[in-house]
Nucleic acid binder design. Structure first.
Lengths: 355, 355
DNA sequence: AGAGTTTCTGCAAACGGTTCCTGAAACAAT
DNA sequence: ATTGTTTCAGGAACCGTTTGCAGAAACTCT
């Protein structure tokens, strides 16, 4: 066969430490030591080396350096999508905390697909980050759990850790730091708010069985109904994903099916609420006059549409993930586990039911 | 069947190719060749090796591999902040296109700070990505330009390229792929729309001298005024950054200063528009009844607040950046340069002026 | 059966740094 | 002047892969 160098992009070699050493008239060992600053060097030698570095615009090869074990620390985070405000805020928190701790943060996306997420983790593993933070819901079947559990072990064996942010533990033996949201508590509070305003027929928008976040939120909804002694009507639960257009679709088709058989709606997140609101308005219904509406997240669209919703400490989730991972790296012991709370933010989209 | 190697091999060193070779009873060269699939191997040997890999859960050390030059391809993108919808969409586009081309994409943030951005580029440089994509406006002084220009050369000398997405070229000699937005054209269209609705006193919200994006948009605003023969009143230009609360602040303090001396407002982006809208509504003014409002970007808040705005192909900008960089890597030649258009999206926030 | 091929596998040299170990100046103390 | 101490710089052995080169085994063909 012919040579495999099909797209060999020329002899683009970077400047090496040897060239710097030669130019400065010292040995490579000296250059290395001066650059890492781990060694007292004679001022004259030091300046000679620094000048050579300057002139050649030398940057140490990261891979060669990492091979020695003296790798620069980094944190990896994998989210479903960076355009979702919630994930963006969590990523922002991770980024901020990582920067404060002198780490680089790299963000990857999975698109909510379990297969792509596993591939991404595998990829990140090659880069030896101090922590791999997984955030967001994914449809976790047994195969997935088994593979992820193996990755967790492999990650732990090279001294980095897996952080599960907003998703259930993989299993008792899989070593992972866990940062949980209080989705169920937040949904309970939201639903209770509607109930105490006299609403009994409450539409739930955004059911998605098998996905952790919607599952946790619908659980809070059901718990609240049960706690208030209101019968649970499964036909009030509408399936859909956490997108704005899905909220629009769900509400629109519900309204098209006949006159509203509900007086309030609880959307599984703010984007669904925004879409649902549009459908209601287009249908000539007013909020909260005709229908009360409540969301979840308290992210950008919420304030603009005067939406009562549940606040989650998005950035704090990211920061806490990093903090716990690094603490665990220092102190060892069993992987920490924590839950961050959520609370109601009252705006103008909920009104008492008048009969 | 599932066999867990709960063998505590002591310490936190990863499993190496040597251990795999030993377990399979072959040499490391054979393992390497079989894993990379670049060489015909006897089926028996192959299965022995694969089993050993399986059992040890071996993953090749990325750094060692990269040192050989057989590095996995990656693309780096640096944005101001990932919570800004615009940057998030561009990053999403980069991510998508990179994935389609079999590349990993890593996202970094600069917070809009020139110093941090330079540090980030320096950091990314260590990782040898195929391209470093810089997006968003930054206050580019001469010092910055000089350093970035040097980085561009250094990047080029090792075969990766710098992409400037939505910012002006560094200089004639700095090798960089350029993807531009038509900010000026979009702003011209937006302002013209207001002018042709009879508005003459148009507030511009979000001036920020020295920053490329606001500068380009205000230029379009001024050009449109000039083209329509409307006198330019500098007092109608209000300074502020591209944040929602800044829009609120700007409009609020303008209204507090006295009765409105304008009939329309052009916000430099949708977030400013959203904040300004809130201030107007709180002040008892209706949109578009009392004041016409127009934004820029056509991102999430826009649809919810029925905002007429200018659409930009956000994701396409990211995709194009990757595409051009990879094409240039293949074909060589002078770095490509392109501009992506913008167009008006008419919703309900602009009305003809009644006198 | 021996020569000529083909097929596979192993040795060892890179890749570009870091760092242990050692030796040579430089300086201080006898 | 000689010895003892520092201080600083260099040689070379790694780190975990890939891969050119060469040798061994298996196979084909007179």
């Amino acid at each position: 066969m012919a040579r495999k160098a099909s797209d060999n992009n020329g002899g683009k070699r970077q400047t090496t430490i040897r060239e710097v050493a030669e130019r400065a008239g010292v040995s490579v060992a000296t250059v290395s030591r001066i650059l890492s600053g781990t060694y007292p060097a004679a001022p004259a030698t030091r300046s000679k080396v620094m000048r050579a570095v300057e002139e050649l615009d030398y940057v140490a090869n990261h891979h060669a350096r990492a091979l020695q074990g003296t790798t620069r620390k980094s944190i990896a985070i994998i989210v479903n999508s960076v355009i979702s405000p919630h994930y963006a805020h969590v990523a922002q928190g991770v980024q901020t905390q990582a920067a404060e701790d002198g780490r680089l943060c790299q963000i990857g996306t999975s698109g909510g697909d379990a297969e792509r997420e596993l591939a991404m983790v595998q990829f990140m593993r090659e880069q030896h980050p101090e922590a791999v933070i997984l955030v967001g819901n994914v449809n976790a079947d047994d195969e997935y759990k088994a593979r992820m559990s193996r990755y967790a072990h492999a990650l732990a064996s090279v001294g980095s850790r897996l952080v599960l942010c907003g998703r259930p533990p993989l299993g008792p033996d899989a070593p992972a730091v866990v940062v949980e949201y209080d989705n169920t508590g937040g949904a309970f509070a939201a639903t209770s708010h509607l109930l105490s305003n006299g609403h009994k027929r409450i539409l739930f928008l955004g059911r998605r069985p098998g996905y952790t976040t919607p599952d946790a939120r619908i659980a809070g909804y059901r718990n609240a109904l049960a706690a208030h002694g209101v019968p649970h009507d499964p036909s009030l639960e509408v399936d859909g994903t956490f997108e704005r257009y899905e909220g629009y679709r769900m509400m629109r088709s519900r309204l098209a099916a006949g006159p509203p058989d509900f007086t309030a709606a609880f959307a599984a997140n703010d984007q669904i609420a925004a879409g649902a609101r549009q459908a209601l308005v287009e249908h000539g219904l007013s909020i909260p006059g005709d229908v009360s509406l409540i969301g979840f997240d308290d992210l950008p669209p919420a304030a603009d549409i005067d939406l009562t919703t549940v606040y989650q400490p998005h950035e704090e989730l990211g920061r806490t993930s990093v903090r716990l991972a690094l603490e665990h790296a220092r102190n060892g012991g069993p992987p920490p586990h924590t839950t961050l709370g959520a609370h109601l933010v009252i705006r103008g989209s909920v009104a008492p039911l008048v009969k």
